[in-house]
Design a protein around this nucleic acid. Structure first.
Lengths: 194, 194
DNA sequence: CCGTTTGTTGACCGAGCGGTCAAGGGGACG
DNA sequence: CGTCCCCTTGACCGCTCGGTCAACAAACGG
């Protein structure tokens, strides 16, 4: 494993990450061997360990990079919008749109949550995201537009709706994404109430 | 592996399942070896393969048995209640109460969802549960008490809220379960609306 | 008291894993 | 051309895994 990379090296590293992400998503982390990853790229095993210290480190990098990318997209989506309820809505839509473009990561993240080696990384990612949501919720509560309940629990509830409906939309290919996003927002704002 | 078991045999089988469930929850499925399981029980390796054809079969049995138990509890909870909204509420509370008593299974189920070997079993369990919820939702929609939106998506939304808040309540030990159940119900019924 | 069935043991096996490393290619630069 | 250094190779290592099996113990019915 080396730290300084030439442009060529940086590309290889990215190839490895992309390829590994696809395989992890398809077959799972443990069942995918390092040999599988390098074979899929048609290179020798040493290449892997030139760019990563271990299989474990690769997944950690994958989790960090994907979360960074998602977060960037969310922030870009709500940029310049003041209304807290609207910010929540735009955040939800951005999240769904991101996962639609990076389907592989859903399975990977879900696995990582079950493995105590990676759970900490994921927990940190989630905490940040929850904290963001809590901020908007508090603003909305102050404005009297959002029900006055524990913002942390509310934030988790929203995350739950988004996560499960994202999963459903990604697996059942026939559900139009817009419709799902619509319902995520509507359900979060109004619940089942007629 | 044998099919006919004496009472003594049935007890051993249960010991293995309980023990394995604990280890799977603590360390994960793949990282827990069959040797670990039998060692934790202080028996030889042959015992495992007397009761189960494979490690895979054990987890499948675990998933089926746990789902059967949860479902029994849900049905018992809503038994004799006619009102659809109330049935949904009682179902949610029963689910949370069951997971509070069987914490191990949350991690196990979450892992199983990420492994294509076990995903089908889990998908079937979920389908059944979603179908139950859909029935109540449709009743509520007919009554005009529930918003007229796609019941399937609504059912998934409810499941998402319950799953995520259950996870949060189980991991953050300090959140009182009643309060979480309360919010699950309130959020599902009214959303964020003030 | 013996035969049968049920349950248990732990050494053993082949396979596959994550990870190492000595050796060698090839582009850039003098 | 020589000589760096980045990158690549793939045989190899130690180890653990899921799973097998011949032998044996314990319980039970007759």
């Amino acid at each position: 494993m080396r730290r300084k990379l030439t442009p060529r090296g940086r590309e290889r590293r990215e190839q490895l990450m992309t390829c590994a992400a696809r395989l992890f998503a398809e077959r799972g982390y443990h069942p995918t061997s390092v040999a599988d990853i390098v074979a899929a790229l048609g290179v020798g095993k040493g290449v892997f360990y030139w760019y990563f210290a271990s299989k474990e480190e690769l997944l950690t990098e994958l989790l960090k990079a994907s979360n960074h990318d998602l977060r960037k997209r969310q922030q870009h989506a709500i940029e310049g919008v003041a209304d807290p309820v609207e910010r929540i809505e735009l955040g939800i839509r951005a999240t769904l749109a991101w996962f639609a473009q990076h389907r592989e990561y859903f399975a990977i993240i879900q696995f990582a949550a079950t493995d105590e080696t990676f759970a900490p990384v994921l927990a940190r990612n989630r905490e940040i995201s929850i904290a963001d949501t809590i901020r908007h919720l508090k603003d909305g509560i102050v404005d009297g537009r959002i029900v006055d309940r524990d913002p942390e629990l509310l934030a988790h509830a929203i995350h739950g709706v988004v996560a499960e409906l994202t999963r459903h939309a990604l697996i059942e290919g026939d559900v139009p994404l817009d419709e799902v996003a619509e319902l995520c927002v509507a359900f979060s704002l109004e619940g089942l109430h007629a």
